[in-house]
Amino acid sequence: MSEKLPSAAGHIAKSYPDIWKNYSAFGKAISEAGPLDVKSKRLVNLALAIGGRSEGAVHSHVRQALEEGLTKAEVEHVALLAMTTLGFPQGVAGLSWVKDITDEANRD
């Protein structure tokens, strides 16, 4: 997970370190419990964030995906796949959230 946390998560981590430590350990245990590789897990988490309509989580998973070496095309494809499963409007919203980060990454 990225060391730099979004403001809300950062506030919780700072204000409630024991809760954050246990939450992080829970996430690590879940991640290690199954056979999926790192790339697959990241793409699944991105899809779940799009399906859950969580713009912040989409941004976070795209940032992490790019840091882990996934391509812009790979993360954008997840949003395109969402269009038929979740509906066109939600897929478009997901793609716009993905592009918030992929377009930002291209400017750097």
Rank of each mutant, 00 (worst) to 15 (best):
E32P: 04
K28G: 04
L81N: 10
A8F: 13
S7D: 14
T71R: 01
T85A: 10
V38Q: 15
L46N: 00
L81D: 10
N45F: 03
S24D: 13
V44C: 08
K21L: 12
E32K: 02
D37Q: 05
M83F: 02
L5M: 03
W20E: 06
Q64L: 15
V78W: 02
A47G: 14
L5P: 01
I30D: 04
L80G: 07
P6Q: 10
S24E: 14
R53H: 08
A9H: 11
F26L: 14
H59I: 06
N22C: 09
L36P: 03
H11Y: 14
T84C: 06
P89I: 04
L43A: 00
G94F: 09
V38D: 15
I50Y: 00
G94S: 11
D37Y: 00
W20M: 02
T84W: 04
V58L: 04
H77G: 12
P17T: 00
A57R: 13
G52I: 10
I30S: 04
Y23E: 09
W97S: 10
L86V: 04
V62N: 11
S60T: 12
E32Q: 09
Y16E: 12
G87S: 08
P35F: 10
S24A: 15
G52S: 11
A57Q: 15
V38E: 15
D37R: 03
E67L: 07
L36T: 01
H11A: 13
L43V: 07
E76N: 09
A13F: 07
T85R: 03
I30L: 13
D18L: 07
A9Y: 13
S40K: 14
E55M: 02
S31K: 05
A9L: 15
I19D: 02
L86S: 05
Y23L: 15
V78N: 02
F88Q: 07
G27E: 11
T71E: 06
T71S: 15
G51A: 00
V62Q: 12
V44K: 05
L46Q: 01
V62Y: 07
S60H: 11
R63K: 15
V62H: 11
S96G: 06
P35W: 09
K39A: 12
G69N: 03
V44M: 09
A25C: 08
T71P: 05
N45S: 10
N22A: 15
R63Q: 14
G91M: 01
L66T: 04
A33I: 03
S31W: 04
S96Q: 14
V75P: 10
F26H: 13
E32V: 01
V62M: 08
S15Q: 11
L5T: 00
E76W: 01
T71Y: 07
S31N: 08
Y23W: 12
A8T: 01
T85C: 07
A49K: 07
G94C: 10
I50T: 02
L48V: 11
T84D: 05
H77F: 14
S96E: 13
Y23V: 12
I12T: 02
H61A: 05
G34H: 02
R42S: 09
K14A: 15
